[in-house]
Amino acid sequence: MRFSLLFLFFLLYSTVFAQVKLESEQDKDGNVTIYANNTEVIPYTLVVDFTTLMNLTSSGGRTVFAVANPGRSIVARLKKTNANQGSSYNYSTKLYKGSYLDKSKEEPVYLIPVQEGQKVRMQPMTHVENIYKKESENTSYVGTAFYLEESTTICAPRKGIVSDMKMDTQLKGAGLSFDASDNFIEIYHEDGTFTKLMVLESGSEKVKIGDVVYPGQALATSSGEKYNSGRHVRMVQSRLNKVEREIKFEQIPVKLFDGEKEISSNQTVNELIASHPENLISKEMSKKELKRLESK
């Protein structure tokens, strides 16, 4: 019985998401520490909004922005104000995939995500509203598409960790413009950016969730035969941003290397040849990874 009472005293309660579990612990002085247990392979951003703070002061204010890295980390600390009075608290939580804090020191350059030497045509995608709402003219950037003459290997455009994938959909019909159920592989980069590659052949994946991938590494095989635009691969980069007191998810254009120069993914280019220069492949590698590359 004594063990149970102590357990209840120190573990006040927990909040559970599919990816992150929050636990609260109280010390002998009545101070509270809130922890996040992240079982995923990438960080998550948490917004904790304290709706009640009675006789407690939050180190981060009423609204706390925190990043839960894989494993256990501290989200917030609550200090008891008056040792002779009781205390209580309550909060609501929002969870976002990725870290809003991670940034690049310099703007990264991405490879064209196909095997080296492959010729492609690049064109920014149109917003889905423009497909289903004929009167809509939404010009927001939503990614770019690389059109292919033949089936080809799709490669990682940057170093990162495979954070999500779905590769078991076999599309039906023909003349498609968009299908939300299509296959994809998602990569999380160390600067908090995601790359999502879509329109992939079912069952063709060469990686799994949790794998670290490098620029030019084979990921899967292209598809697109069911689309009215033919064979292609779609690529979208996105990241979290803190705007005032909110976290927002935005899709962003990126720099690409075409073998000779850098171009923006929001441009239309009729012909590009994919190139995988060693300086870009090794750009984000650790010393250990570089040694392994040099030994090959």
Score class of each variant (00 low, 15 high):
1 M>D: 15
6 L>N: 04
11 L>K: 11
11 L>C: 14
16 V>G: 04
16 V>N: 10
20 V>F: 05
20 V>G: 04
23 E>N: 01
24 S>C: 06
25 E>M: 12
25 E>R: 11
26 Q>H: 03
28 K>E: 14
28 K>A: 12
28 K>T: 09
29 D>H: 09
30 G>D: 03
34 I>W: 00
35 Y>H: 12
43 P>G: 01
44 Y>K: 01
44 Y>W: 15
45 T>M: 01
50 F>E: 12
53 L>S: 05
54 M>I: 12
57 T>Q: 13
58 S>Y: 00
62 R>K: 13
64 V>E: 09
66 A>D: 08
69 N>Y: 12
71 G>E: 13
72 R>K: 14
74 I>N: 11
75 V>T: 08
75 V>F: 02
79 K>V: 08
86 G>E: 14
87 S>H: 11
91 Y>N: 08
91 Y>A: 11
91 Y>M: 09
97 K>C: 09
101 L>C: 05
103 K>G: 12
104 S>C: 06
105 K>E: 07
106 E>P: 00
109 V>H: 08
112 I>S: 10
115 Q>R: 06
116 E>G: 07
118 Q>C: 07
120 V>G: 04
122 M>Q: 13
122 M>L: 14
125 M>K: 05
126 T>E: 14
126 T>G: 11
127 H>D: 13
128 V>G: 06
129 E>H: 07
130 N>Y: 08
131 I>T: 09
135 E>H: 08
137 E>R: 10
137 E>L: 05
141 Y>R: 02
142 V>M: 04
144 T>C: 03
146 F>Q: 10
151 S>L: 06
152 T>G: 01
153 T>E: 12
155 C>P: 03
158 R>G: 07
160 G>N: 06
164 D>P: 00
165 M>P: 15
166 K>L: 13
167 M>T: 07
170 Q>Y: 10
170 Q>R: 15
177 S>P: 01
179 D>N: 15
181 S>L: 09
187 I>L: 14
190 E>K: 07
191 D>E: 08
196 K>E: 15
196 K>A: 09
197 L>Q: 07
198 M>I: 05
201 E>M: 10
203 G>L: 02
207 V>C: 10
208 K>V: 14
214 Y>L: 08
214 Y>E: 10
214 Y>P: 13
217 Q>I: 03
218 A>S: 15
220 A>D: 11
220 A>F: 02
222 S>K: 00
223 S>E: 08
225 E>A: 11
225 E>K: 09
227 Y>F: 15
228 N>M: 10
234 R>A: 00
238 S>L: 03
239 R>I: 00
240 L>E: 10
240 L>V: 11
241 N>F: 03
245 R>W: 01
248 K>Y: 01
249 F>A: 07
252 I>F: 05
258 D>W: 04
260 E>S: 14
260 E>I: 06
262 E>G: 01
262 E>H: 02
262 E>D: 04
262 E>I: 09
271 E>W: 00
272 L>D: 13
274 A>E: 07
274 A>I: 02
276 H>V: 13
277 P>K: 03
277 P>G: 04
278 E>F: 00
280 L>I: 06
282 S>P: 00
282 S>V: 15
282 S>T: 15
284 E>I: 00
288 K>R: 15
290 L>G: 09
291 K>A: 10
292 R>Q: 14
293 L>T: 05
293 L>M: 14
